[in-house]
């Protein structure tokens, strides 16, 4: 693991040098720590890993510190969560959060849960969409629901413990239809089943669909976000279509409990600056990430509300511990 860490540090340093040549506007804010470790449970190249690595390329413009991404894999995220939850709350260690960390806490017995960490900031909301194959029979969400009412729907989600599954289950309930919600081992697996017609629709994030979308193989049916997506203004929200289901796949950072207030304030300011940075904007706009920055108080409320909602939902489905 030591080698891996060293390798990552080197790569991060190289990226930092490469970016340093870019425009340096206002001086970055002073920070109590020299090195900040950002932990993720995802493997190099995975969702949260890419989020962190893209972010730290530009973060030095706003916070005066060296950022290191550390991939702590294993135990379905339990190891990464324990590592962060038991670290010192001094602003040197953070964890990349998404709804997954709440699900892991609720569904599995893990030594440290989301409750043992303090949300520091949320940055984005991913675009969660319902999609179908272009040459299939479904043109709109109404078609999908009508089919599920008449016969039986077949809806796909990438992973069992995921926001996508919750979105699908809630839509099924809101529409009062009969649909099999089939979970897969990742988005690629599900994509094949949407493309070959095994599934009526799939629920996923825009980033995972981009190549098929650009090739015109799949079509977006609706988005689960609260508003229409900037990149796809013609795609209605699920709510507009008459079903009161809105989900928000937040992305942000959490740290060990008891962070100094100035650290929290610096992160909030830095994130607001970062999402307005034109260079970074290009990166996240391409992935249809919706910037929604919340400071620690807002982020904590968001996570707590989400956890309460999910817990009630999982209990009902019999999946919570």
């Amino acid at each position: 693991m030591g080698k891996l860490k060293a390798a990552m540090r080197l790569a991060v340093a190289a990226a930092a040098v490469a970016c340093g040549i870019g425009i340096a506007k206002a001086a970055p804010e002073a920070y109590p720590q020299k090195v900040v470790t950002l932990v993720t449970h995802s493997s190099p190249g995975g969702g949260s890993d890419v989020f962190l690595r893209e972010m730290i390329k530009y973060l030095n413009r706003y916070i005066d510190a060296t950022f290191v991404v550390e991939n702590v894999q294993g135990g379905s995220g339990a190891r990464a969560m324990s590592k962060v939850a038991t670290a010192k709350p001094d602003g040197a260690t953070f964890y990349a959060i998404t709804p997954t960390y709440v699900f892991t806490s609720l569904m599995s017995k893990v030594p440290s849960t989301y409750k043992d960490m303090q949300p520091v900031v949320t940055v984005f909301s991913d675009a969660e969409v319902l999609f179908t194959r272009t040459d299939g029979p479904f043109k709109s969400l109404k078609d999908v629901i009508a089919h599920a009412k008449e016969k039986r729907g077949r809806w796909g989600v990438a992973n069992p413990a995921s926001l996508e599954r919750q979105a699908a289950e809630r839509l099924k309930k809101a529409a009062g239809v009969n649909a099999a919600i089939v979970s897969h081992e990742g988005g690629g697996d599900m994509m094949i089943n949407v493309l070959n017609g095994t599934l009526d629709v799939g629920v996923g994030e825009i980033q995972e669909l981009r190549s098929q979308l650009e090739a015109g193989k799949v079509r977006l049916v609706a988005t689960f976000n609260s508003k229409r997506l900037d990149g796809y203004p013609n795609v209605p929200t699920v709510k507009e279509e008459g079903f009161d289901v809105v989900v928000q796949k937040f992305r942000g950072l959490a740290g060990p409990k008891g962070q100094p207030p100035e650290v929290l304030a610096i992160w909030e300011r830095a994130m607001r600056g970062l999402i307005a940075d034109p260079d970074y904007k290009k990166v996240y706009a391409a992935e249809s990430l919706v910037p929604e920055v919340q400071g620690s108080a807002g982020a904590t409320k968001l996570v707590d509300d989400f956890a309460a909602e999910s817990e009630a939902f999982l209990k009902e489905a019999g999946a919570a511990k």
Binding site: S76, P160, S183, A319
Partner: peptide, 11 residues
């Protein structure tokens, strides 16, 4: 973790 339902098994 159960691949379909997501709950823990035999852990």
């Amino acid at each position: 973790i159960d691949p379909i339902s997501g709950v823990d098994r035999f852990t």
